[in-house]
């Protein structure tokens, strides 16, 4: 839904602050993807396709740490923190609720930064594949990244046999988040 809020200035400010953070964050996912071993061996078309279908999900993982479940606040990448109630007034409440729930579940797994980065790589190459020309190459890339993630996690936590599967169970959550919210209308101010 388009944002509606009494205090016109604050909602406008919030949208601008969101838009200013969002575009660079998308560009950072593109740079991140180019750093994934093997990603740039895919055809340019397949790289673009995976990024178009996976970037929103990678951002959801990345934004997890910005959602503070206890205090019900969200901190944008520019450091500004907003209470959930203020953001609800912008009409994104179902996305916000889903994000709080998702970030609580992922946060509870206590991943290290490098494990989180490898998980984001798996998220990207596990994105929707309609439009992919070389399916085999994408599957091989995905298998390699999942193997690397499993060995990193099991090496660090040999006695925790459930963490890896709990992590993979987040993939369908992300797919749902993506399908429910990435096609929502959002106003962006473009200079």
């Amino acid at each position: 839904a388009c944002p509606v809020s009494g205090a016109e200035r604050t909602s406008q400010e919030i949208w601008e602050s969101f838009s200013q953070c969002f575009t660079p964050a998308v560009k950072e996912v593109v740079e991140f993807a180019k750093g994934i071993p093997g990603f740039q061996e895919l055809s340019q078309q397949d790289q673009v396709m995976l990024l178009k279908s996976g970037t929103f999900q990678v951002l959801m993982v990345r934004f997890c740490t910005l959602f503070n479940a206890e205090e019900r606040t969200v901190t944008f990448l520019n450091g500004q923190t907003y209470p959930l109630s203020t953001l609800r007034a912008l009409g994104m409440s179902s996305l916000l609720d889903a994000m709080f729930e998702f970030s609580e579940k992922l946060g509870s797994l206590g991943l290290e930064p490098d494990e989180m980065a490898l998980f984001m790589a798996v998220v990207l190459v596990s994105a929707d594949r309609s439009g992919i020309s070389d399916m085999r190459a994408v599957e091989q890339l995905q298998e390699g990244l999942i193997r690397a993630l499993r060995s990193l996690i099991t090496r660090r936590r040999p006695d925790d046999t459930t963490l890896f599967s709990k992590l993979l169970l987040r993939l369908p959550d992300l797919r749902t988040l993506n399908n429910l919210h990435s096609d929502k209308l959002l106003a962006f101010r473009i200079d």
């Binding site: 388009c2 969002f22 575009t23 998308v26 560009k27 593109v30 340019q44 790289q47 673009v48 990024l51 178009k52 970037t55 929103f56 919210h181 990435s182 096609d183 929502k184 209308l185 959002l186 106003a187 962006f188 101010r189 473009i190 200079d191």
Partner: peptide, 25 residues
């Protein structure tokens, strides 16, 4: 003056990605 374009999040992401790859061709 700032132009105000309405688009979906998915379209906004696609737009940025297409621009990036076009620029780095």
């Amino acid at each position: 003056p700032k132009t105000h374009r309405v688009m979906t999040l998915a379209d906004h992401i696609s737009h940025i990605i297409t621009q990036d790859f076009a620029r780095n061709k």
